[in-house]
Amino acid sequence: MHRLSLRAGGLARWDGNAALDIDALAGCLASPACLVTQTTSGLIIGMLLFLVAVGLTLIFGVLKVVNFSHGAFYMFGAYFAMTAYQFSDSFALAMFCGAAGTAILGLIFERVFMSRVYGADVLMQLLVCYAFVLIFDDVVRMVWGPEFKSMGMPAAFQVPPLFIAGGVVPPYYLLLIGVALAAALVLGLGLARTRIGKVIRAAAHNPGMVSALGINTGLLYGGVFALGGMLAGLAGALAAPVRSLTPGMGFSVLIESFIVTVIGGMGSILGALIGALLIGLIRSFGSLGFPLFTEGLMYLFMVIVLVSRPTGLFGKEVA
């Protein structure tokens, strides 16, 4: 019970530093170079968060279940990508394995376990997910070992960074932002325009009627869960070259992406995008001005949004 839990990175300590460093923040805001660097780092945090959060919000919107084990899919995506990259040396294959592997995992997880607790109360759903948070973390520890791993930057991206207005921007960051934006666009258009998108939206609204019209809702639910898992896995795979991998790395991402969905409004894709970008920027600029209170800033922002708009910025109805 008192095992030292391995925590995901990002909780660095700043001993002796002031909790408030307005000068650093003001200095950065005045310099275009620093502004560009901080904004890109905020954007990649935000984009990764968006991919995880949009899966969470999609699963919640359609299945009415909060996937508490969603962070595990992010973690698996990263580990799958790392292993695939080590075997094949191909970055594209690594991304594909990260996304496809977690999609299959999501499908199995939904069909075998989650589908059994749809009728049950929230406590049961949380417990099943909690069980899998424990199990998945230990599975990763078993297969890949408990120590920190790193995938390393693929050779294709080991090129000199770009300089925009004097700020340093690694090319990989641009790819990451591009892929995430493309995913957002495909998802948004797919849900709005395609037949499958319409069916998914209809199922979110009235699953009984959709089922009565001859659509296999079980398969649909499995598919939506797989899609959500795949997006989280893709985020993990994209993050693998720039973050360190450790069992339990998914949990802090889960908390942050939940904050994102709460801010943006549960079930809203646009909300998830805006919320994720806001949190990313708060994190990157907050770490300058409030080094001790970066996480706190995030929670504070969430509290302010919740108190003023309980359904989030883009939430239409009470979920």
């Binding site: 607790v117 417990l127 099943v128 069980a131 899998f132 424990l134």
Partner: peptide, 14 residues
Amino acid sequence: HGIVLGAVILFFAI
């Protein structure tokens, strides 16, 4: 022990 604990939780929950 996460795996064992998880299995026990699943037994009770499902």
